[in-house]
Each structure stands twice: as C-alpha cells, then as structure tokens.
Amino acid sequence: MRPYFFGIVLTASLGGILRMLILRSDYRQYPTYPHGYISHLSMGFIAAALGAVAWPALLEAEYVAVTFLAMAAQQFREIRNLERESLASLDLYELVPRGRPYIEGIARTFEARNYIIIASTLVLSAIDLALLRGTSYPLRIGILGAVTVLLYFLINSFPDKRVADIAHVRLGKVHFQGPNVFVDDLHFMNVGLAEAKEVYLEKALGLIIEPKDIDAAATLANPGQRQAIVHLCAKLLGIYKDVDTPEFSPLMRRDIKSGRLGVLIIPGSGDPQALIAAVKRAPVLEGAAAKPSKSYAGRERDDYHGTTG
C-alpha cells in the first residue's frame, strides 16, 4: 500500500475538510455546541478515509476491503438513529418543539452527508489515481484542493426547497371575535383569559400563507411541516412564552376550504419583516413533501391549475 499512502492521506484529509465546510450551524440551529461538531466531524473523517482507501484497495486486488464500505453504510445508518433519538429527547424540553418529522429530516441529512463525503472522496481519489500519479506533491495538493472546492459548491447548489418556493407569505390582521382569535378570516383558537387576549392584541403577529399549487397545499397541510415552521419562527425571533403559559404557543392553522394557512405567534422581537423572512426561509421537509400533481388523479382535480415548480 506504500505507493498509495500520500494519495490516501491527501484525499481523506480533503474529504474531512469538505465535511467541515458543509457542517455549519444554520437555520436548523443545530449543532450549536462543540461536542456535536466533534462527533459529526470525526464520523466525517471516517467516511472520508473509507472513500479514500476504496480505489487503492481495488487496485491491489484487496476485494475484501470493499465490503468494508457496506459495513460503513451500516454504521452511518446508526448515526441517523442516534441523531434521531438525541434530538427527540431534547425536543421534550423545547418551548416550541421541533416535531418528529423535522427531527427525522435532520437525522436523514446527517446520514446523507456522510454518503456525500464517501462519494466525494471516491471522486477525488479516482482523479488522483487516474490523472495525477507520479506528479509532484504540491501539484496534487493544488489540483485536488481545487476539485474539493468545486465539490463544495456542487453540494451547496443542490436545491434546498424553502417555503418561499412553494407559497406566498403576507401579513394578516390579528383580531378577536368573543374569545376566538383570528388572523384575517382564519380561526385559531379559543382564548379564555382576558389577560392573554390583551397580550395577543398588543403583541401578536399573524401571517397568511397561500400555497402556489396543489402540491404546495398538500405539503403545507402536513402538521409536521407546520410544527417545523413555528419552531423556527420561535427559535429565530424569540418567543413570548414560558412553560406555564401554553396560551402563547405559536400556532399554524389551515383553512379547510381553501388550503390557505395562517401563522399566529407572539415573537420576542415584534418585527413583522423578520417573521416573514423566517417563514419564507423555513425548509420544506422531505417527509412532508407531497406531489399529487405527478399523478393522473391529481391532475384531474378541479383545483389543479398546473404547478409552479
């Protein structure tokens, strides 16, 4: 394996760096603590090392080594379980929980990123073995480094669907009819405490979300998707709520007739534009995404007027 040593170390390190680049604390607000980073980075380096040794192992006719890839896949599936379990247990102590479907999406993303790293290092080491063998070390580092940057942009350019892609978001008016709170004509809930009503009238913000097509309507109707949206709003804007004031839990309700949705929240910071931005940039959950328009029956519906994307 000696002739491959430099190539393996180089591609494994570049794969590890790539994992570091795509690991960031973003709208998911996770991971936000050093130990989370460390565990994901070390798994990322293991994935990178696996990808880096695959081709050299094949070239050396060490076919058994390739079966290790299958074992690795098993390991990474385990990551998904761990991630899911740890997030789900943390979720019990969130003021506004993420909800299981969102957690599932995050867990799946973390698993998938390891596969992306394996694939990337396979590409890197293939380039190294096929084109750069025998060239000088600085040249190999330079070219493979450039390819890594390219891969990074490629991975980042994968479209991550956001709510803004599938729906229009606008401000609505929060008002009461008796004890019932509405945003425009959308009913939310019955608020019994006079004190709570006053807070709602003074501080609450309401949004109306209009799905662009039947696919969007089906996706946004998913309660898990809705919980993810309110969780993000509460995380990003702050929330006017404590554990003993459930009446201030942010809500998302659906108009059963039109499929429109409403968001009602008392944010910590009352900036309506920030709230709209938070909702627009909320991710569309993989587990909630539905595409009735892809079926014959879906296209036969009277509310089907083509899709927007």
Binding site: P179, L193, D244, P246, E247
Partner: peptide
C-alpha cells in the same frame, strides 16, 4: 373567575378556554 382560571392555568400548565356561557375550562393540550 378570571383569577382562579389564571392560577389553575399556571399551576397545571393548562390552557384556559371560554365556553361563553359563564364557564371557563382548563385544558391540557
């Protein structure tokens, strides 16, 4: 009535709903 309902709501972490017939209920959601 409002005061009792508020206390009960805070203590039980339940939500107060108004049935509009002079009755408030505290519900755990």
């Amino acid at each position: 009535q409002q005061r009792i309902a508020m206390y009960l709501s805070r203590i039980t972490e339940g939500m107060v709903h108004d049935l509009e017939n002079g009755i408030l209920i505290i519900v755990r959601h």
